[in-house]
């Protein structure tokens, strides 16, 4: 069982999306939240395997969507991740990250 969109991936998502001007919305089972809001994303409490719809709207929507999809595709593992694992194994991140599907509706 893989971890879902937990605290660490959630904040990475917010960080990435906030780097763009476009509005970013995430929809899950009828709930639509602001993808640049950590409060909203955490509220979704998305577990792994959950299908999320990602929507971008704005001048840099394509670049923004690319960046976000890359994050999902890489399972939210970034540089620095290996270091984190050593530091606090078994804490908020688990060993794997989500495998949510990003549907591009940009």
């Amino acid at each position: 069982m893989k971890a879902g969109l937990h605290a660490r991936p959630s904040s990475m998502l917010v960080k990435t999306a906030s780097g763009f001007v476009s509005d970013f919305m995430i929809e899950l089972q009828g709930y639509r939240i602001n993808g640049k809001s950590i409060l909203g994303i955490m509220m979704l409490a998305a577990e792994c395997g959950t299908e999320l719809q990602l929507m971008m709207d704005g001048p840099d929507e394509h670049e923004a969507m690319d960046a976000v999809v890359r994050l999902f595709a890489a399972n939210f593992s970034e540089e620095g991740e290996a270091q984190e694992r050593g530091e606090e194994r078994g804490d908020e991140k688990g060993d794997d990250h989500g495998d949510e599907k990003g549907d591009d509706h940009g």
Binding site: A7, R8, S11, V14, K15, I33, N34, K36, S37, I38, L39, G40, G80, Q83, E84, E87, E88
Partner: peptide, 21 residues
């Protein structure tokens, strides 16, 4: 003091700066 401390503080900052909030 450590990466963990920095990350925890950054997540506090993210809450403070949350656009919806």
């Amino acid at each position: 003091e450590s990466e963990t401390v920095r990350r925890v503080l950054e997540s506090q900052m993210m809450i403070l700066q949350d656009p919806e909030l």
